[in-house]
Design a protein around this nucleic acid. Structure first.
Length: 423
RNA sequence: GGAGAGAUGGCAGAGUGGUCGAAUGCGGCAGACUCGAAAUCUGUUGUACCCAUCGGGUACCGGGGGUUCGAAUCCCUCUCUCUCCGCCA
């Protein structure tokens, strides 16, 4: 949520900055109508409440002195009837205002390039040279299937956009996740956490807008529970309703992620680029408000470190205003080189949400001797495990159908240096 | 699944219809003492919001609803926690 004080002070300015995200992000005129009505009603209600409290207090005192309270009682009764109606109106109005505010996206940071779509994202830097192949390059489906990547079984069990894995591929998949967890906990100082794979509606609305995006989530029938689309959902909510005293907080969480992929029919249907279920190692930081942009660079670097250790070529993209996620003030996407697609594809997304999520979930810290303030939250994929598997299979494929195990992963594969079809 | 108990400020914990936003302790902050620290003493210390110049006001005692002129306190309901019994990975 955007700070309502900022909106009150300069609704037109905010509208201008939000317009860079695309049409309809914020209706300043509507907001001002809400505010005017709210102000009038709230003032009236609070004045009436003050009178009611006064009368009630007077009755108590009069009774103690043994005086006649009948006239006061009558006054109180009249006020009560009056109050009931206007109080209810205020509740309705405030709820409407809340719903309106919770649907307004975050204000993009000044450094975010202005643009309409992913076409306008800005490339910040590249690392690594795409490998030259002296044999016909296969994509991860053709490389993986003989080694145990089993789309047919995934589809049989749960339908399209699900995958099963067997033998060496399943092991490699696990090794990738283990490797990432080890690097982030041992070298980057993150605390490993385990969290529920379902969250309540309130927690979902804490990280993003549930009203706007619930179609992207899988919901548990008849319960206020959603399968997590990323560990960001449960883990950011660790600080929900908390006043934390030591910053920064650094968490890493390996979890499955579930996405309905509504609206992506026909996109990336081959292989496991876009599945309903995939694993991800998520890194997350809760920081001091003045330090979050330095932290965004650091956290992005932590995700990049994984790609460097895996020796996978990648580039860093700064998302433009039109491509920025709802809650984010600034996002870097890491795109890994996929020879099978002859393209860079997203493998990590690192964002600074500033106080946007903290305000939605009441996550604060206490300055020494001061009042609690909202923290800043950040997170990034470090990395998507399924897509990392794709990247390893495609970049490390050999002419004979085997796949070389990247050096960094070998300790997690019992020292094995390649995987090949079982004889 | 059955029976019972509970949920109060950063934490612990009083408070069973009226001057309670809430005793007390701990913690925090400021000061005194000290070369400094500890100990001790003194003061101070919830959050959000509204109107406004000083200042005034409102809401909040797990969530929601109700009774009442007035609710932390009474009633209903939901959620969560704890104890016992049953079942179980």
């Amino acid at each position: 949520m955007i700070d309502i004080q900022v909106l009150r002070k300069d609704p037109e300015g905010v509208a201008k900055r939000l317009a860079a995200r695309g049409a309809g992000a914020f209706d300043a005129a509507l907001f001002q109508r809400y505010e005017a009505a709210r102000k009038e009603l709230q003032t009236a209600v609070e004045q009436a409440q003050a009178s009611r409290n006064r009368i009630a207090k007077d009755i108590g005192q009069a009774k103690a002195k043994g005086q006649d309270v009948a006239p006061l009682l009558e006054q109180g009764e009249k006020l009560k009837v009056l109050l009931e109606k206007s109080e209810q109106q205020l509740v309705v109005l405030q709820q409407e205002l809340q719903d309106f505010l919770r649907r307004v996206p975050n204000i993009p940071h000044d450094s975010v390039p202005v643009g309409a779509s992913s076409e306008d994202n800005r490339e910040e830097r590249r690392w690594g040279e795409p490998r030259k192949f002296d044999f016909p390059v296969k994509d991860h489906v053709d490389v993986g299937e003989p080694l145990g990547l089993d789309f047919a079984t995934g589809a049989k069990i749960a339908g399209s956009r699900f995958v099963a894995m067997r033998g060496p591929i399943a092991r490699l998949h696990r090794a990738i996740a283990q490797f990432m967890l080890e690097v982030h906990t041992r070298e980057h100082g993150y605390t490993e956490v385990y969290a529920p794979y379902m969250v309540s509606g309130a927690c979902a609305d804490g990280v993003s807008s549930l009203a706007k995006f619930k179609g992207d989530l899988f919901k548990v029938e008849d319960r206020d529970l959603y399968l997590i689309p990323t560990a960001e959902y449960p883990v950011t909510n660790f600080v929900r309703d908390e006043i934390v005293d030591a910053l920064p907080l650094k968490f890493v969480c390996h979890s499955p992620c579930f996405r309905s992929e509504a609206g992506s029919a026909g996109k990336d249907t081959r292989g496991m680029i876009r599945n309903h279920q995939f694993d991800k190692v998520e890194i997350l930081q809760v920081t001091h408000p003045t330090k979050s942009y330095a932290t965004l660079e650091e956290l992005t670097g932590h995700a990049e470190a994984i790609l460097k250790k895996l020796e996978l070529p990648y580039r860093v993209m700064s998302l433009c205003t039109g491509d920025l996620g709802f809650s984010s003030a600034k996002t870097y996407d890491l795109e890994v080189w996929l020879p099978g697609q002859n393209a860079y594809r997203e493998i990590s997304s690192c964002s600074n949400f500033e106080a946007f999520q903290a305000r939605r979930m009441q996550a604060r810290w206490r300055p020494k001797g001061g009042k609690p303030e909202f923290v800043h939250t950040l997170n990034g994929s470090g990395l998507a495990v399924g897509r990392s598997l794709v990247a390893v299979l495609e970049n490390y494929q050999n002419a004979d159908g085997s796949v070389t195990v990247p050096t960094a992963l070998r300790p997690f594969m019992g020292g094995q240096d390649r995987i090949a079809r079982p004889a």
